[in-house]
Design a protein around this nucleic acid. Structure first.
Lengths: 206, 206
DNA sequence: TAGATTGTTAATCGATTAACAATC
DNA sequence: TAGATTGTTAATCGATTAACAATC
């Protein structure tokens, strides 16, 4: 039987991975839960508890091998492979995402870009990226076997586009639109509307 | 004495506000905790409990007046005013953010944009937006009395730029760079690195 | 009035922290 | 070996849910 890991723990794993990859790129070969916790602002006990859900990755008295733990976390998070992504909406944000180099080497690659604006369809974003007609979204996403989408369309279009994405077999949506999406069970959504995060901070200001 | 509200509750208020503003724009004048919860996927009990931290905004048997609750939430979140924002990094993402219309009417306005690339400094992003030299960040942010920054620089520059922002009096940072920032107490940081959110979802895929 | 829905209390559930034996 | 740090257990802390009297 599958051991069910709380979502809140899963959400911390990418943060651990990010910090460990940074240390690794600096040539640091090992760390402790204490040191890692200091860097990312999480208690050492919590890091050890979280990791213990997945195995025993450390050595008493020694801490953790960074290359080993990076490898383990990549495997746990399924980013020891490359996931193709469809970007929906070729406005300023969609194009910025398509240009972003930060996905490479972290498990992701933008493969298709869609828009419904005729002035935009067929134009190149970079060399190989031609903006596709949203009307062809379902067959093209299905054919490319893409499971992840990034949604950068206006709020007014977001739900209807989401319905298309679900129809096309998309299982994970990173949503930049300022609206809560309705999706069937088994489809994951993460919200990254900047306004939500800014308003969370202005509560504490003034 | 100030009543201390848990951060997790504060984080839900902008979601309530977003949904209520959407309903309001549709001409809906009132709602219940049940209905609102359905829309955003949060239990009715939790919504009532959260709101009760700040006052009594509903009427038994009737629910909540949407215009009234919107007004109250805006006031609680301090977005019944307009906050000027400094965007740091005039790359693809920084420029996309500067163009984004979604801040207007939600409490925010991009006021200054900075970069350190000489080929970029002095060029206009839109009519009134000239990219400013990062070397002038501290005095310009101080003079404009800006308290909120959005950080779109590479990870390698993020911490040193953050130190400048803190020096300039910035109290809230929305960080797109893939790195945990170190800030003094009283400075708030929210993380919106897309890779973190994508990796959180790929855990559940395949 | 009768029905609906709030605000709040108490019970449940889940997450974090502290502490330490095991051991590298 | 002595010191350091893990993995894990038990205790604490906090968040969510269920239930219902109050009342519009």
């Amino acid at each position: 039987m599958e051991n069910l890991i709380p979502d809140i723990i899963v959400g911390r794993l990418p943060i651990y991975l990010q910090a460990l990859e940074h240390m690794k790129s600096q040539g640091v070969m090992s760390t402790s839960s204490q040191e890692l916790g200091q860097v990312i602002g999480i208690s050492a006990a919590q890091i050890r508890k979280d990791l213990s859900q997945f195995g025993e990755f450390g050595k008493q008295g020694k801490g953790y091998s960074i290359p080993f733990l990076v490898e383990q976390l990549r495997s746990i998070l399924n980013v020891d492979q490359v996931w193709d992504i469809a970007v929906i909406g070729a406005g300023n944000l969609g194009r910025a995402i398509t240009h972003y180099q930060g996905f490479l080497n972290h498990g992701f690659r933008v493969k298709l870009v869609f828009d419904n604006d005729p002035r935009c369809i067929g134009t190149p974003i970079i060399d190989e990226f031609i903006v596709q007609d949203m009307a062809n979204l379902v067959p093209l996403v299905q054919k490319a076997n893409i499971k992840i989408a990034m949604l950068t369309v206006p709020a007014s279009a977001a739900q209807s586009v989401t319905d298309l994405l679900v129809k096309a077999g998309i299982k994970a949506i990173l949503n930049y639109a300022p609206i809560t999406l309705s999706v069937p069970p088994g489809v994951h959504v993460q919200y990254v509307d900047p306004v939500i995060y800014l308003q969370k901070m202005t509560y504490y200001l003034k």
